[in-house]
């Protein structure tokens, strides 16, 4: 659902039941300490207690593989290698603790080509700044309620880059008809 508008409007807010966010482990990666502080405050207020923070791809990679978080928030522009690099490592590195983890990419970029780049790197959700409590929590709900199918090709491993969910498409399958394999659990990338 990269680039998707979060599916959280007033109706959904009224209908919501409480999530046990306290059961989640979340990794926040941003080189700006103020942004990390803001994200941490929002997530902690929502009930998250197992919060890990990193400021670079190197420290994030170590924290990711040690803590094995349930969700990763990563800023695109970091000091040194970018957040895109971290997403690619999470998805395709043989040492990745969890290639399927939902990754929410935060960025000041708003152009469509950046959304496509984030999508192609394997981001699950894209969140353009400025951020708010509502937009952050909406992305959390999105990854919980609307998990993405995963795709493996020779050149890509990550969330399905097509916008609809499996089974939604009614037309002729033009991508290698007959070669798609639906399985319950993914083999290692």
């Amino acid at each position: 659902m990269v680039g998707a508008k979060a599916r959280t409007g007033p109706r959904q807010i009224r209908a919501a039941m409480t999530y046990r966010f306290d059961r989640l482990k979340i990794l926040v990666v941003d080189d700006n300490p103020h942004m990390r502080k803001l994200l941490a405050a929002i997530l902690q207020a929502a009930g998250v207690t197992q919060l890990f923070q990193a400021e670079s791809v190197a420290t994030a990679w170590a924290a990711f593989n040690e803590a094995n978080p349930d969700i990763v928030f990563v800023d695109w522009m970091l000091n040194g290698p970018s957040g895109l690099e971290l997403v690619r490592m999470i998805r395709t590195d043989a040492k990745s603790a969890n290639p399927l983890v939902p990754v929410i990419m935060l960025t000041g970029y708003t152009q469509i080509e950046h959304v496509i780049q984030a999508r192609d790197a394997g981001a699950t959700e894209f969140l353009a700044k400025p951020v708010s409590a509502k937009s952050i929590l909406a992305r959390l709900v999105a990854v919980i309620e609307y998990p993405r199918a995963f795709v493996r090709t020779k050149y890509y491993f990550g969330p399905c880059r097509r916008r609809h969910r499996p089974g939604d498409y009614r037309g002729q399958e033009r991508r290698s008809a007959g070669s798609e394999v639906a399985i319950d659990m993914p083999p290692k990338p």
Partner: peptide, 30 residues
């Protein structure tokens, strides 16, 4: 090109529960 599509089990939903019809943010949490 060979392409494999699969739906991972929703471990997050199993962990946090809640939601209901399509989910949403609890107003008190927000």
């Amino acid at each position: 090109q060979p392409i494999e599509i699969f739906m991972p089990p929703n471990v997050l939903k199993a962990k946090v529960g809640g939601g209901g019809n399509g989910g949403g943010i609890d107003p008190a949490t927000l």
